[in-house]
Amino acid sequence: MARASVVTGLFALGVFTILAAGGIDVSFPAIGAVAMYSMTKLVLEVAPGMPVWVILLCGIGIGAVFGAVNGILVNSLRVPALIVTIGTQYFFRGLLLVFVGTVWLMEIPPQMVAFGTWSLLEVKAGNGVTVSLPMYFLAFPVAALLTWYLFNRTLMGRAIFATGGNADVAARLGYNLRKVHVFAFSFAGGLAGLAGIIQASANRMANPFDFAGTEIGVIAAVVLGGARITGGTGSVLGTVAGVLLVTVVNNVLVLVGIPSTWQRVVVGAFILIAAGFFVLRDRKQSI
């Protein structure tokens, strides 16, 4: 369960950053897939000896570059980020599938396998099954801490919140909107790239069609965590809680015996209820 939440969690932190800046990003699954697949292919074919930390850094770098493209486009076209990222989502995945490759890579580099199975601690369960908590799980709390630090201790975090709250006012206060947008989107892209590499290491294969359709669930998790979709609010802690909630809900529904067919109904209803709840709370506060 902890494992399932790592990739979603990294994506969610990225989405949260964008939401705080006042936009919605739906291109992160495509970015994750690009970083995952092209890095795996690169390592396999060009540089088999590349150590795993370089792979991770490169993955983050690829994600950040694609994210920066998003940021520049959002800033210069002045249209809602949702629409821009819908375009770039097609574009990025198209780039990957047309120019990089479409075949599933079932054999991934040994150093990535090692990274995927490198366990932090192992617990022998009563029935003899070894449950291990893999090392890459740490990526989620570390990224969460980093995001928390960014938002609560740095000027850039303030700038992102200010832009999300009211872009015009932020611009008049002297924040450079272009810088803020590019930074927020690169940050989210970098997290997506990291998530991609981790996904490949954990599953021991790289599938260029991976992550398609995960965007809605991740956005739902972030919104459940209290980030308002219009930007300017939210907290890292809330996002983490939202991710855990969605993961737990998905798992518990299965354990309790609610048929998996009902899952979407429940998650959809959850989003609507949460949205209604936040609206009512805001209304009370404003009175």
């Binding site: 949702l82 809605i216 739902a220 919104v223 219009t230 899952q263 979407r264």
Partner: peptide, 17 residues
């Protein structure tokens, strides 16, 4: 007064469900 994006995101899941 729920934001349209959020509302239709939720109903999208609800309808599919």
């Amino acid at each position: 007064k729920v934001t349209p994006i959020l509302c239709t995101l939720g109903t999208q899941m609800l309808f599919t469900g």
